[in-house]
Design a protein around this nucleic acid. Structure first.
Lengths: 129, 129
DNA sequence: CTCCGACTTGAAGTGCGCTTCAAGTCAAGG
DNA sequence: CCTTGACTTGAAGCGCACTTCAAGTCGGAG
């Protein structure tokens, strides 16, 4: 069993963030030894998933809905499917942005107006309203 | 020439956001007619690029650095190249997340622990520390 | 002319994701 | 024993991206 400090060090995260996740309901309250939190190995995996999801643009509330609920809960699969869809949009936008930046790097016209015009011409379909 | 309200309506954004962007230096101060801002068509393109960049995970400060500076400024190309790189990471994480969610949808084990274990087994290389 | 609605400004407020602070508890080492 | 340092809590603070509010200005319709 690890202390919150050990977990934090291994997960490269601040203890305060772990406590914050717990308060928000992303993590279950762990066992306690004379008041102090004691964690098993599982916590590291859970924190990894939280970070991974955060870095994919999920909010903590979404992460709680998706991962901290019981399996098979009613709207959960629907939500997950929606999220898969959202990620398609995110990926498309990120790729469009890359295209724009690469183009700007090549053509030496790195200014808002020029790049916008280029983007519009070549990538209009991927620019959401 | 358009008023801030017209621009806002066409760009699907609040006037307050336009003023905020202006204050932050993302947008130049437009012409004024008896105190009121008057915009040409260019503003719509500029706002589109800002939204597009925001949706790709850029902060407003980054957007200002990248797009609101003069062309060819010193560290600008370097920054852009860095951003292209960051986007690779973002795209990879988003795709990893999609994989995880799709898997969870198929195998009916949508719980933090199960998905984490799956992710770890199948996608460890894409999980950043 | 008067009223309405859209605009102006600066300042304060909001929600998110944390961090920091203050005050206190506890266990282990010297 | 007593100090040290990691922990506990609740509350406050912070940076971001805006929005909202308060108080005032302005142009055009009636």
């Amino acid at each position: 069993m690890m202390s919150i400090g050990e977990v934090a060090q291994q997960a490269q995260i601040r203890p305060s963030a772990i406590r914050y996740y717990e308060r928000l309901g992303l993590l279950p309250s762990p066992a306690r030894a004379s008041g102090r939190r004691r964690y098993g190995e599982d916590i590291l995996l859970q924190l990894e998933v939280i970070r991974f999801a955060r870095q994919s643009g999920f909010t903590l509330r979404e992460i709680r809905q998706l991962f901290a609920g019981r399996p098979y809960s009613s709207g959960l699969r629907e939500l997950a499917a929606q999220k898969v869809n959202d990620l398609d949009g995110l990926i498309a936008r990120a790729q469009g942005m890359q295209l724009m930046l690469r183009r700007a790097l090549r053509c030496k016209c790195l200014s808002l107006q020029e790049c916008a015009r280029q983007l519009r011409r070549t990538n209009a379909s991927r620019m959401p309203k």
